[in-house]
């Protein structure tokens, strides 16, 4: 329960000064671009930009370092799984085969596989820094107005704000509930058999859910009394107007997306193939 989450910290840098809406649009387009392409040159270029943006932002390692290990662990696990399931996926994709090393049975290390997995790694490495930057440099109070700004209905945008607002409160409820359950002897640790554990979990989930359903009633009554949903739109206290920097950021990401798309689909394949 003591697990930390990465969170916004107030700082000043060109990245922090960008508006939330611009950063959200940037992050969305950036992610889609990185998902779409397998072109090594484009990914390499994007990675360079991501690293540069990270440097400019001046975020502190202590604020995100602890998730990096976790990410790295899943990342490694995924790579091992890919190799175990399909050691010749690269060969299939690139259409050639250059063996480097025979491990055992069907497990050959090939240049193609290494290159394919290198590209997967690149794909993640272009998205992860941008995701971290978005979270670390955007005040959560700006999320809702930013979503609304990029075209999402204000009601749905506001539900994101409510989620962020109540996560700490619900975490505290969850902690209280599981404490009192443990004191009664409700055990959900490995010491208990799985089926018993599942039954015990209901003993924790039920109070959490009933408290939350009550909370939903109170909060919606309060919002209704204060005129939420009154109009077709609403304004936002925390919205930031689009400034030059914001336009520049969006223009940059659109340009990157366009160049990447051109590079990627020019020859009819998502993959950049150095083996042909």
């Amino acid at each position: 329960m003591k697990a930390r989450m990465i969170a916004y910290r107030h700082q000043d840098s060109p990245i922090h000064r960008l508006g939330g809406a611009a950063k959200l649009a940037f992050f969305a387009i950036w992610s889609v671009t990185a998902m779409m392409t397998y072109d090594t040159r484009a990914l390499g270029f994007m990675l360079a930009i991501a690293v540069a943006a990270f440097a400019v932002s001046k975020v502190k390692f202590a604020d995100y370092g602890f998730v990096l290990y976790l990410i790295l662990f899943f990342f490694l696990l995924n790579h091992i799984a890919i190799f175990l399931f399909s050691p010749l996926e690269g060969v299939k994709i690139y259409g050639t085969r250059h063996d480097l090393l025979h491990l055992a049975g069907r497990y050959w290390v090939t240049e193609e596989q290494l290159f394919y997995q290198f590209n997967i790694a690149l794909k993640y490495m272009t998205v992860i820094p941008m995701a971290l930057l978005f979270i670390l440099t955007t005040h959560p109070g700006e999320f809702a107005s930013s979503l609304n700004r990029i075209g999402i209905s204000y009601r749905i945008a506001y539900s994101v704000s409510i989620a962020l607002r109540y996560i700490p409160d619900i975490q505290r409820d969850f902690q209280n509930i599981s404490h009192s359950a443990q004191a009664r002897g409700i055990d959900i640790s490995r010491k208990e058999k799985l089926l018993k554990r599942l039954k015990n979990v209901v003993g924790i989930l039920m109070p959490l859910i009933l408290t939350s359903v009550q909370r939903i009633e109170t909060v919606s009554a309060a919002m209704e009394l204060r005129g939420f949903g009154r109009g077709r739109g609403r304004t936002w206290y925390n919205a930031r107007p689009f400034r030059t920097g914001d336009y520049a950021a969006v223009a940059l990401v659109v340009a990157i997306a366009a160049v990447t798309a051109w590079l990627t689909f020019r020859d009819g394949s998502r993959f950049y193939n150095p083996f042909r």
């Binding site: 005040h139 959560p140 109070g141 704000s161 409510i162 962020l164 607002r165 909060v219 309060a222 919002m223 204060r226 005129g227 939420f228 949903g229 009154r230 109009g231 609403r234 304004t235 936002w236 206290y237 925390n238």
Partner: peptide, 15 residues
């Protein structure tokens, strides 16, 4: 319901 004091005070006005 706001994320900050200022935002919560503004809620009715925003609506």
């Amino acid at each position: 319901v706001g994320m900050t004091v200022a935002e919560d005070i503004a809620f009715t006005l925003e609506n």
